[in-house]
Amino acid sequence: MKTIKCVSAGFGGQGVLTVGQLIAILAMDKDLAVSWMPSYGPEMRGGTANCHVVIDAKEVSSPLIAEGITHLLAMNQPALDKFLPRCAEDVVIVTNASLVKNVPSDFKGSLIPIDFNQIAQDLNELKVANMAAFGALLRTMPMFSREDGIEAIIKKLGKKNESLTELNIKAFEMGYAKEA
């Protein structure tokens, strides 16, 4: 398989680390090798957060993605600005459309802009915007199904916050179904 080098990035509090963990869980459950590496320390205190998820068939070589990002979730403009130069040419970028306005006109990869905040607002729960983003991002990874995604949400978040699970899944499905 072609190595997946996925970066999930945004403001602290937008839940980008959780999105990365959900993808890592999916990969683990498919018996693939996977690593999840968060930004930590002072980088977090500046208000930005990101994580690197690398998925490979047998072994993850470097858990840090220096270049060749294949999948990028940019939940805000700084996230896109920071990671765009490190993307592969055929990258798939999912953006949080209301907060990411400027995409360079010469960008050649696939762009999927979706207003995740709007989806969350429609569900009256701003916290679930990241689940909608998870849905949209997952759809760009054909090795995982919609059902896999729901299972991962239940596995990772079901116990922690049962009352939110239903909304999490609803947001996920809306993000998954949304046409860019």
Binding site: M28, S35, W36, M37
Partner: peptide, 10 residues
């Protein structure tokens, strides 16, 4: 090192 401490893996 810090990567091993902070990283998640199966």
């Amino acid at each position: 090192d810090g990567v091993i401490g902070q990283m998640m893996e199966p």
